[in-house]
Design a protein around this nucleic acid. Structure first.
Lengths: 227, 227
DNA sequence: TGTACATCAGTGAACGCGCGTTCACTGATGTAC
DNA sequence: TGTACATCAGTGAACGCGCGTTCACTGATGTAC
């Protein structure tokens, strides 16, 4: 390996380490992450972090992209091993929830309230849409296999807007599939977020996984999945 | 009016004014609300605020209770004027969404990511559960009127937990109604939050109300509402 | 009616802290000739 | 192989800022006798 490559590798490793420490700090500081605290934990001067990230916002952006990718990855891998559409659906949903429970503050970073004064740059969209595309693909595949319940066509102006999206970016999906995928996605993420943010306290304490699966199946039915 | 009462009234008015300014500040600062900034806006010394709230957290708590009450109030009033269960359901849902759109930062305060380092005290629960009780009451009423679709009984450990809750606090509701109400509530709040937090950008822009109603009806079906 | 006292909203200075970012710098490492 | 130079990670001090909370205080208003 050339010296230049070695330097590049060390740089990449340091970048990862900064992100790893920053992720830990999300737990205590939430989204108002402190660059100085991260540097302190790494035993380096706060100014040194600027060798790796041009600003606090850029570090935040990196964390956000990582989080979207991680949850998307987890869902994709879980679904990949399954046979039927329903199995894939359930596997993807549980994978997302498992990841959220293991990384609650990263989940809050991407699906919680927006960080005041922070505007997500374009770079985040690709990673952000991965999990939605996975859900859409599962539904579309089931649709082609004739496993999707017959439903009345969508009506209303929002249906036209969704049809336009389908035409421009997702020609293999119908407006109906997109609407139902988004709706199911909102339901699933809502269920995960509310469980995570404590709204189930004092009601369902033990079998939250079971209750989540109940809701996950409901979301599947909403999306037309039979079985 | 006695002088003591006058003093009490002025005190109450000042308290309200502090909360009003603090609510405006949620927009810029999110949950890391600055007491000093609020005092500055009111033209008073920051220490004066301590005559009204013992700490920043206590002010936050007051804002949270107000927000829960406001959205609960809006939903209750909207539902009160309707005839059928479905009409009440839609009216309550739209009222919650309308309130959220009008007060996005207060919505984020109660249904967004938890504020780091802040633990909600007991006083908030009554206000927090109002809207869920309303939804549960609508479903229960429809159930008594025979307007709820027949469904298989709940199975699983979470069903037992919910049955225990029903037995202890809500004897007129079945575990099934509670499960479905919670699930529908998560779905509705998820839809509102994700719309508010920008997840619909570049897909549905115009007719978000229509798309929300589509999801609201789906939530109603999930809860067993026919029609 | 007049006076001494209590109440209490609000002041302003201070404590001790943390923050993001900049800047001139050091010193190790690698590169070119 | 040896030397001059370039690169670049990391330092430490500084700038200018904001924060929550405390404390001794002022001064207006109301109360008791």
């Amino acid at each position: 390996m050339s010296a230049a490559n070695l330097r590049a590798r060390l740089r990449a490793e340091m970048t990862e380490e900064i992100k790893a420490v920053a992720k830990r700090h999300l737990a205590t500081d939430g989204a108002n992450l402190s660059l100085r605290a991260v540097a302190r934990d790494l035993g380096m001067a706060s100014s040194a972090v600027y060798r790796y990230f041009a600003s606090r916002d850029e570090l935040l952006t990196a964390l956000i992209i990582d989080a979207y990718d991680a949850v998307g990855d987890a869902a994709e891998r879980a679904a990949a091993g399954r046979e039927t559409a329903l199995e894939k659906w359930l596997a993807a949903g549980h994978a997302a929830r498992d990841w959220a429970i293991a990384n609650p503050h990263e989940w809050a970073l991407i699906y919680g309230s927006p960080v005041p004064g922070y505007a997500a740059p374009r770079d985040t969209v690709d990673s952000a849409t991965r999990i939605m595309l996975l859900l859409g693909a599962i539904i579309a595949e089931a649709d082609r296999a004739g496993e999707i319940a017959e439903r009345a066509p969508l009506t209303g102006r929002f249906a036209e807007e969704l049809a336009a999206v389908a035409g421009a970016y997702l020609p293999h999906l119908t407006a109906r599939v997109i609407a139902d995928t988004i709706a199911a996605f909102f339901q699933i993420c809502g269920a995960i977020s509310f469980e995570l943010f404590g709204q189930l306290n004092n009601t369902v304490e033990d079998d939250r996984r079971g209750f989540f699966e109940y809701q996950l199946r409901a979301a599947g039915r909403l999306a037309g999945l039979t079985g």
